[in-house]
């Protein structure tokens, strides 16, 4: 049970008319890990999250959260009882005061922790008597986090959680997420901020045009992934590097650039056998992201 993924999808697809927002997405999110969900704007991150929460229905494919089928309304209800969601736009009821919204949300969760609520209310300096529409976006994000954390969820799904936050608040948010993970909660969050993901994520899922393009432990990525640049001196055409371990390759003039997840020695040996000069450099998340999702020139 402990090794079972908290989220898994198989061939998950969502079309909006002719637009394929998500296309055959198969992914898993491991328990008690922080999983960063990366992709460009419009890559399908929010659509995927909305399908997991039952807000939109998959066009095809299946998905399970905590073992429950995301397409079944009754099971979706069970999912929502056991997870917390902080949406991209932090849309909360503006006509309620902070205290009213907390009281409102509390009523839905029997496991609500008043001690966490009180601690976060104080830590985030949220004004209980003020209307939600009158507080800043940063404060709204903190309020959304309070509502998510005080219910003691098994998973927290966050869609662009640091959007609109100042650097101090982002720092606090990242610390909070790490503390929550240490408490046994699984975290699945989408972000554009690669530095944030690099700082706290255990695992990285990368999505491009609705399809998964990378699923790796961050430590594996940093330790095992390499950029390999191969330069050819002669005039013969640059060959394709269709070798094991090559995740993505790009040819520019007399140069071939590759992102390799394994078999680095084999790839270098192959390049040298072709008379080329190979240079190997470590990768960071930014390099990998740009390599995997950037349009081919």
């Amino acid at each position: 049970m402990a090794h079972q993924p908290v989220i898994e999808t198989h061939g998950l697809t969502r079309h909006y008319g002719n637009v394929q927002a998500v296309h055959g997405l198969s992914l898993t999110v491991a328990r008690r890990q922080i999983t960063g969900f990366l992709g460009r704007n419009g890559a399908g991150k929010s659509s995927t999250i909305k399908m997991l929460l039952g807000m939109i229905r998959p066009t095809a494919g299946t998905g399970r959260v905590l073992g429950y089928d995301i397409a079944d309304p009754a099971q979706s209800l069970q999912i929502r009882r056991r997870i917390a969601y902080v949406g991209e736009d932090k849309g909360l009821y503006g006509y309620m005061t902070v205290a009213e919204l907390i009281r409102f949300t509390r009523a839905f969760y029997p496991d609500w922790r008043p001690d966490i609520e009180a601690r976060l209310l104080q830590a985030y300096q949220l004004p209980p008597g003020r209307k939600v529409k009158a507080i800043s976006k940063g404060m709204r994000t903190k309020l959304a986090l309070l509502l998510a954390l005080a219910r003691r969820p098994e998973i927290i799904i966050l869609d662009e959680p640091s959007e609109g936050l100042d650097p101090v608040s982002i720092e606090e948010l990242l610390q909070t997420l790490q503390e929550v993970r240490a408490g046994g909660t699984s975290i699945f969050f989408s972000s554009h901020q690669l530095s944030e993901v690099e700082r706290i994520a255990d695992r990285v899922l990368m999505i491009d045009r609705g399809q998964l393009v990378m699923d790796a432990l961050l430590s594996d990525l940093l330790n095992n992934y390499r950029n390999i640049t191969v330069e050819f001196a002669g005039q013969e055409p640059v060959p394709a590097f269709d070798l094991a371990g090559v995740e993505r390759s790009r040819i520019q003039g007399r140069q071939a650039r590759m992102l390799a997840s394994a078999n680095v020695e084999g790839i270098v040996a192959h390049a040298r056998a072709l008379g080329a000069v190979a240079q190997v450099t470590p990768v960071n998340l930014r390099d990998a992201f740009l390599d995997l999702v950037r349009e081919a020139p």
């Binding site: 929502r80 949406g87 849309g91 969760y109």
Partner: peptide
């Protein structure tokens, strides 16, 4: 709507 629909 996201907040409302995420309620159990």
């Amino acid at each position: 709507a996201g907040f409302t629909l995420a309620l159990p």
